[in-house]
């Protein structure tokens, strides 16, 4: 990432690019374990979406579709809060890790 100098900064260093932190891929922090989504078992309760601190649950067309590993830090809260009867999210061993650094 190219460092900006004061000349490029907005007055008062106001950030006009709302929500640009999506470029920080927090998934790079994950180590050891990651959640796995089993679609057939999912009852669409949305608890995983609710209790994911890093907004890493993929929701498409009003349905939970899986995990966004770009942001998932592997805390495991989704798996713990997934209803015990279904257990549509289980924690598995992480095989390959994302490359370090953001998406730029």
């Amino acid at each position: 990432m190219k460092k900006e100098t004061w000349k490029e900064l907005t007055i008062g260093t106001i950030n006009l690019d709302a929500g640009n932190s999506v470029k920080n891929l927090t998934g790079t922090w994950r180590s050891g374990k990651k959640p796995q989504f089993i679609e057939e078992k999912c009852i669409q309760c949305f608890f995983c979406w609710l209790y994911c601190p890093h907004s890493a649950i993929l929701v498409e067309g009003g349905e939970v579709k899986g995990i966004n590993y770009d942001y998932c830090t592997g805390c495991g809260m989704c798996s713990v809060e997934c209803p015990p009867k279904e257990k549509a999210i289980i924690m598995v061993k992480e095989e390959a890790k994302l490359a370090e650094g953001g998406a730029e």
Partner: peptide
Amino acid sequence: DRLVAGHGMCLGCGIPL
């Protein structure tokens, strides 16, 4: 989302929830 992904809060943090 009014608070989007990519923030630096810890694993399992309660604040974003």
